[in-house]
């Protein structure tokens, strides 16, 4: 091949190569091919409708599981309940007592999702609310999914006190943070709960610096303890102590505070005085114990789920609580 022919052939080859490469680019342009859009990972991992549907399913299944008996019932409860909700349901079964009204799992109105913990990691958490039409009480429900292949289960269902309210949390789509320690709070939720438990002890309550005792549960317990002491007169003594069980679950409020769910176990003890032949115990305890009188002592265990609002400054407030008689032992 001569020089000019070789050059022409080379030019043609180059032109063909450029045409093929340009053709690929043109094809991409024609169909509008672009890079895969980036996934947004900052907000809530579920949309509000999906979270509401999940809440409805979980509450319904929890109610159904609570009504079942025997080993199948226990399996069903463990499949859909965890933490405080499971403790409350198991307590109702072992004590053969009904749930005090308003029942948080009674067929609710359609739930409203208040918050979803943000991010793509697990465990995932949903906070929702329903309204108990009979009592006009608002109920708070906390749900969690521990792993990608685990469905959501109920952590807690708690009626709010009359007149109590949950401070602003922010748009659901933005998601909320979980709170693990006391950063930005008047004190760590776990410390505040310990303080609250100690402050509810009877007859020697500790001083509470970071939590208010002017809530429905505190007032009720103080009144009840005083009434029982008065009723027992000198025949027996009444004491009460509270213990925090497990770690609380807390989500950040938009004002910087936290909404905290926790499980407490209350132990009421009636101890007969040395001179007393027999002491008559209150009717609910007698029903649980199987007899109305004791000679030495009786210990009654009650599980309680509480919800607190912990602010950045000032004092924490308990805004809702549920309690369930668990067991009684006496002699």
């Amino acid at each position: 091949m001569t020089g000019p022919r070789r050059r022409i052939a080379a030019l043609l080859a180059a032109a063909a190569t450029v045409a093929v490469l340009a053709g690929c680019g043109v094809a991409d342009q024609v169909v509008g091919l672009h890079a895969v859009p980036t996934e947004q990972t900052g907000g809530a991992p579920l949309n509000e409708q999906t979270a509401a549907a999940i809440t409805t399913r979980v509450i319904s299944e929890a109610q159904s599981a609570r009504a079942r008996t025997g080993a199948a019932g226990e399996r069903a409860r463990k499949a859909v309940l965890t933490g405080p909700a499971l403790a409350m349901a198991q307590a109702a079964v072992t004590s053969r007592t009904t749930v005090a009204a308003p029942d948080p799992l009674a067929t609710p109105e359609a739930p409203t999702v208040l918050a979803i913990v943000r991010g793509r990691a697990w465990p995932r958490t949903i906070l929702a609310t329903t309204l108990d039409a009979a009592s006009s009480r608002q109920l708070l429900h906390l749900l969690t999914s521990p792993s990608p292949t685990s469905p959501f289960v109920l952590v807690a269902s708690v009626p709010m006190f009359a007149g109590a309210r949950v401070p602003a949390i922010g748009p659901v789509a933005q998601g909320v943070e979980t709170v693990a320690d006391g950063t930005g709070l008047v004190a760590a939720p776990a410390a505040i709960l310990s303080e609250y438990a100690a402050a509810l002890a009877y007859p020697r309550p500790a001083r509470a610096a970071h939590v208010s005792l002017d809530d429905e549960l505190s007032r009720s317990l103080r009144t009840s303890a005083a009434a029982q002491t008065a009723a027992l007169k000198k025949l027996a003594t009444f004491s009460q102590r509270q213990q925090v069980v497990g770690a609380p679950t807390a989500v950040r409020l938009s004002g910087g505070g936290a909404l905290v769910f926790a499980l407490l176990v209350r132990t009421d003890t009636i101890t007969a005085a040395s001179g007393a032949k027999a002491v008559t115990v209150p009717a609910p305890v007698a029903a649980l114990l199987g007899r109305s009188q004791i000679k030495r002592s009786v210990t009654v265990t009650t599980v309680e789920t509480v919800v607190l609002v912990v602010p950045p400054t000032g004092t924490a407030t308990v805004i809702g609580a549920a309690e369930q008689l668990a067991s009684a032992k006496g002699s």
Partner: peptide, 11 residues
């Protein structure tokens, strides 16, 4: 295969 049908990740 993973038990994905029970997972609650689905839109």
């Amino acid at each position: 295969p993973a038990a994905i049908a029970g997972a609650e990740i689905w839109r």
